[in-house]
Amino acid sequence: MTRKIMIVDLDRCIGCHSCAVACKQENGISLGVFYNKVRTVGPFGNYPDLELYYLPVICQHCNKPECVNVCPTAASYKRQDGIVLVDHNKCIGCQYCIMACPYGVRTYDKAKGVIEKCTLCAHRVEVNEVPACVSICPGKARIFGDLDDPNSEVSKAVREAGSFLHRFADVGNEPGVGYILKSRKWRS
């Protein structure tokens, strides 16, 4: 089995939004729509005793994606390699998956009448390239690979991170993306 996944090392992320724009270019996303956004978590505290980190957010490519369960046309589906995709030929734009997504990472592209979201650059993964946001990240904060391969970079990163590996709140969907944060308190 393969399980393609992304790990983001938040200690390396400088919140420069380069990934967000790289993604827009790579995937030809409409203006006003993002697959990938960088949130600023903080600053917490009072000046000058502050703490913050940046949180790049994409589709979590959950292990048990609720968006797939609820999609009436099976346009949302999970591939063998773990990537969750939307087949635009089938998507009727009912937006039910947006309701089912715990993280607000799906969006309805009004112009196209379909759901848009991070594809983990599946078209690149298929030709053995990493997603655009991974390849250009100025902090090299993103790691991409196969979690089921114990020798992959992601597997190593997950092992090394230990208890510093964080995930978004799980409501049964088992989010896939992992966030490493050692230097600050995880608050997301």
Binding site: C16, H17, S18, A20, V21, A22, K24, Q25, A132, S135, I136, C137, P138, K140
Partner: peptide
Amino acid sequence: EGKPGTFSEGTVCSRAF
């Protein structure tokens, strides 16, 4: 895209796009 193998190591910032 960023061109790897140099000092910038294939990374680029948003402005390049």
